[in-house]
């Protein structure tokens, strides 16, 4: 049973306080939806939890399975089971997507990075690309190199499916996807949650949430949690918009 607990986290970027006292927790199988207007700090929160060196933790803890990982380098956090799916992933033309996935799995299993992919991985990769709507050709391209916005999202989800982390931080997996894409990604996330991954997910639309059915919803505003509840919050936001929703609190 895995658990991520964020305790009174405050984060600054370039000297500016972006997150100011956020606490929440998520466990295996749970899906936590993190909503909030643009600039409310969602991406900052994810980058901080994942250990991006540009984000400076002013105070608070990031507890993974009872251990504070806030001082660990990003790769250590990954190895302990924490994985982020980026909203705007970086392009790495020199490294193929398949090379990356194989390397991640090899590393997790204590093998050498460039060891050939085991047949089981090859099989699940072939299934995985179908599930998220990519083709084998995408695997042999550089990471996100020449990918459309939607393909980048799919590639990020594919990586999650292959790694099956303890905790997944998924930043707007649905933006730039058409209805079918949202549905496919939503289903993939649901199966990820069912296999035991704790998911924190940001989004601006209710569509994907109707598919993944979050256990809880948090609304972030100006670096703090403004509201906490269930799907009824999503419906209210859908109806009245963030501004009115936040005014009413």
């Amino acid at each position: 049973m895995a658990e991520l607990r964020i305790e009174d986290l405050a984060v600054s970027v370039d000297g500016k306080l972006i997150i100011n006292g956020v606490s929440f927790g998520v466990r295996s199988g749970e899906v936590l939806a993190l909503m909030g207007p643009n600039g409310s700090g969602k991406t900052t929160l994810f980058m901080t939890i994942a250990g991006h060196p540009r984000y400076n933790v002013v105070r608070g803890k990031v507890m993974l399975d009872g251990e504070d990982i806030v001082k660990l380098p990003p790769e250590e956090r990954f190895l302990r089971g924490l994985m982020v799916a980026f909203q705007t992933p970086t392009v790495v033309p020199e490294v193929r997507l398949s090379t990356l996935i194989t390397a991640m799995i090899n590393k997790i299993n204590g093998r050498k990075l460039t060891d050939p992919a085991p047949p089981s991985l090859v099989n699940s990769l072939m299934k995985g690309i179908q599930e998220v709507g990519l083709t084998p050709a995408h695997l042999s391209r550089g990471i996100n190199h020449g990918f459309s916005g939607g393909e980048m999202k799919r590639s990020e989800i594919l990586q999650l499916l292959m790694v099956k982390p303890k905790v997944a931080l998924i930043d707007e997996p649905d933006s730039g996807l058409d209805v079918d894409g949202v549905f496919a990604v939503g289903k993939a996330l649901l199966s990820l949650a069912n296999s035991g991954t704790a998911i924190v997910l940001t989004t601006h639309s209710a569509k994907i949430l109707h598919v993944v059915k979050p256990t809880r919803v948090l609304v972030l505003n100006r670096g703090r949690i403004a509201a906490e509840g269930g799907m009824e919050l999503v419906e209210e936001i859908e109806k009245v918009g963030y501004e009115n929703f936040l005014k009413a609190r």
Binding site: P53, P74, G142
Partner: peptide, 25 residues
């Protein structure tokens, strides 16, 4: 730095990230 950071969030050390990029290169 972006490329290295990205690969670090995928569990690679800075050194591993660099050598993987070099190998791909």
């Amino acid at each position: 730095e972006d490329k290295i950071n990205y690969l670090r969030t995928r569990g690679l050390t800075e050194e591993e990230a660099k050598s993987l990029i070099v190998l791909g290169f």
